[in-house]
Amino acid sequence: MDLAPLLRAYGDSARVGDLLAAGVTERQLRTAVEERVLLRPRGGIVALPDAREDVLAARIAGGRLTCVSAAVHHGLWLLRPEPRLHLASAKGIGGAVVDHRLLTVPPLRRLPVAGLADVVLHALRCLPEDDALVITEAALKSGRVEKEFLALHLEGRRNGNARRRLERTDGRPDSAQEVVVREMLPHAGLDFAHRVRIAGIGEVDFLIDAWLILEFDGAAFHMDRKSFRRDLRRNNAGVVRSYATLRFTYEDVFGNPTGMMRDIREALHRRPRGIPGTAAGTGHQPRSPFQPRCLS
């Protein structure tokens, strides 16, 4: 039996007991360790030489990755990496580890990773607000967890802050930058609508002052011919209907938020003649400037 593909399915490392249950023999394991195909970082655990450090650390600690440490394993957006390991149900952990203790839903089958609901619950209780909102919105957007289910597990006084965060989510953003911008605009004193459907144009990311459209391209956005034509049609349709569009990238939101907000304010001050607007963006100063931390 080729052990490498099997170990990959377990996240590059596994408990010896799990491999024996999968049909691997003790002789095969001994040979693989002797030939350095597998390493034995601790008794009862074997790993590939290039094993993922987070998964291996979770196995050694006898816990499950959760919160920000589990986000990537569930395909969730991540605002920024966390140097500390976030674990649940670990035994005798120490050092740079955050202990989230108990789990409420079954973990992943082969990986030492908490279930999606627990990952979100732990994030809502543990992380800075922007990080928690990004992870929660990504989970809700995936359709694999429901807001009502999360709310049921956030009862009690100790979960008040987490409940307030959850109440602000709706699963509508398409990217981490949308979540961050949704938090930035109120702090800048701008009235806006998020995820608005405009006749003849379609759904837009944000609409400010009833005429200025903001669109955000993702970190992995690549303009192919089809999407290029689609965006041209949308922009042209907006101009015909007296809307203006500003487009921003991942780098604008997380690398130059000050410049992005400056462009938005300058555009609002240049409202085309004849277009009615609200007071938003006409000189109101930010109450509390929001500086999102850089994604890496």
Rank of each mutant, 00 (worst) to 15 (best):
P49A: 08
S69Y: 03
V98T: 12
C67R: 05
L116G: 02
I208S: 04
F206P: 09
R15I: 00
T31W: 00
L133R: 06
L102R: 14
D205C: 11
G92H: 11
P128F: 09
D174T: 01
V37H: 08
D217C: 06
E146M: 00
R265Q: 03
L29V: 10
D54L: 00
V134S: 09
R110H: 14
H74E: 13
K226V: 15
A132M: 03
G259V: 11
F149L: 15
T278E: 07
P257Q: 02
V179I: 05
R182K: 02
R42K: 13
C294N: 13
G143N: 03
L150Y: 02
R168G: 08
R101V: 15
V98I: 15
H100W: 01
D224I: 03
T25H: 02
A151F: 11
P106C: 06
R262I: 03
P49V: 10
L127N: 10
M184I: 07
P292E: 05
A132Q: 05
R247T: 05
D18E: 15
F216P: 09
V196T: 13
R247S: 07
I208K: 10
G189A: 04
D12F: 10
V181Y: 00
R168H: 07
V97M: 12
G156I: 02
R271Q: 12
V37Y: 08
H86A: 07
A280K: 11
L154T: 11
H269A: 14
P107H: 07
L127D: 10
Q285A: 15
C294R: 15
A151N: 01
L246I: 01
N159V: 09
R172I: 06
H284S: 14
A96V: 00
P106H: 13
A58F: 00
R165D: 09
E146D: 13
L268P: 12
A193T: 11
Y250A: 09
S89V: 08
S69H: 12
H74D: 13
C294S: 15
A47H: 04
R157D: 02
F192E: 07
Y250G: 05
L150E: 01
I60S: 02
L150W: 02
R195N: 14
V16L: 07
L65I: 09
I45N: 05
V180M: 03
L102Q: 11
H86G: 00
A244R: 10
R197T: 15
L214Q: 01
L38A: 09
D217A: 00
L185V: 12
M223Q: 15
L214M: 04
A117T: 05
F254H: 01
H222G: 00
R293N: 04
N235E: 11
Y243H: 12
V239Q: 07
S89A: 15
M261A: 06
A237K: 03
T25A: 04
H194Q: 13
